[in-house]
């Protein structure tokens, strides 16, 4: 069957990419300047013998191929090493910080996709209307805005003492606040609002623009005219024929964008002190904490690869033509 072949091809492709990332990740951190043991030692002022011992412990004196075998084996066993900064296994550190990012990126992606697509669909449907012109301008402006800048403006407007003080300045919850129950959820929601809004605003313009142009493209197609000529009502023409076909390029974009959303989260999390992977990356870079960075890079790469795979699979489901190709 064409469908199964398509599926297998895409999964194999994803696995190859993953293997490449694994290799790249190893060499990237070997090329970076500085010796991890010395960096570690300088922070704690160790004697030279202790540094030599650290180098031995880290396996930095082993030949490169040996180091690679160790690295690959450890990575496959989900052993990413010990974080310099936190003195705990990298896996554990990442696990402790992954959920705030998943929450933020998840809410932002869903929010921006839904709102962006609706704006795009309505704009294309009522092309040239006041709504269309307004949303077009709005999309272009938000699309062009850097998200950290937008975040800071929102902070000043809605959180600072010189602003409205409607929302907290940062973090995911009020220190010493409720730790469970509805009060806890509300507290997290209040903290989530501004960073999520920042990311949503930064993303939805692009989705709205792509959806609008994609839909306008499709609406000129003859099968749309045919459906109309057969007596299908306009709203149904849109729902049954135009939107599903116009979604194709948009789906790919949303999935491909997941990678950028994560990198966007780095700046947004920093602005809002959101204790997720983005902020953790910044902390790891400042240290510098190589094992942690390596783990984070791997995770981000895997996220992008998985997002791509999902995009391919959805695309294959949405467009029967792709399955054969």
């Amino acid at each position: 069957m064409g469908a199964r072949r398509y599926l297998t091809a895409k999964v194999v492709q994803a696995l190859f990419t993953l293997a490449f990332v694994l290799v790249f990740n190893f060499f990237l951190f070997r090329i970076l300047p500085g010796n991890p043991a010395q960096i570690l030692a300088r922070q704690r002022r160790l004697p030279v013998e202790a540094v030599r011992e650290l180098e031995r412990d880290f396996g930095l004196k082993d030949p490169l191929p040996q180091q690679f075998v160790n690295y690959a084996g450890d990575t496959l066993r989900a052993n990413f090493g010990i974080s310099f900064k936190f003195r705990r296994p990298v896996g554990e550190v990442i696990q402790g910080r992954i959920w705030p990012t998943v929450l933020l990126v998840g809410v932002a992606t869903i929010g921006s996709t839904v709102i962006g697509l609706l704006i795009g669909i309505y704009g294309a449907w009522r092309r040239g209307s006041g709504f269309d012109m307004g949303s077009l301008g709005f999309s272009l402006v938000t699309y062009a805005m850097p998200e950290f800048w937008l975040g800071m403006i929102l902070l000043i407007l809605f959180a600072s003492t010189s602003g409205l003080e409607l929302f907290p300045l940062g973090n995911i919850r009020t220190p010493g606040g409720p730790a469970s129950g509805i009060a806890h959820l509300l507290d997290v929601g209040r903290h989530l609002f501004l960073p999520a809004l920042t990311l949503i605003l930064a993303l939805l313009g692009e989705y709205a623009l792509i959806m609008r142009s994609s839909l306008l493209d499709v609406m000129g197609d003859d099968y749309i005219v045919t459906a109309r000529a057969k007596g299908l009502r306009e709203a149904q023409v849109l729902r049954r024929h135009a939107v599903p076909n116009a979604l194709l390029p948009t789906v790919t974009l949303v999935a491909l964008n997941l990678g950028f959303v994560v990198s966007g989260a780095i700046t947004v999390e920093t602005v809002f002190s959101w204790p997720g992977l983005g902020l953790l990356t910044v902390e790891a870079l400042q240290a510098p904490d190589y094992p942690l960075l390596q783990g984070l890079f791997l995770l981000f790469s895997v996220a992008v690869i998985v997002a791509n795979l999902i995009a391919d699979l959805i695309y294959g489901y949405l467009d029967p033509r792709v399955r054969v190709a």
Binding site: D222, Y223, V225, T226, A227, A229, K230, L232, P320, R321
Partner: peptide
């Protein structure tokens, strides 16, 4: 009924031939 110049464009690429032919029957 209307028939167009380009049959490729006149059929929704996501619909099977059955669906395309049945659409008019369902509309009416």
């Amino acid at each position: 009924q209307m028939v167009f110049q380009d049959p490729t464009g006149a059929l929704n690429p996501r619909q099977t031939i059955y669906e395309s032919v049945a659409e008019g029957l369902r509309i009416h």
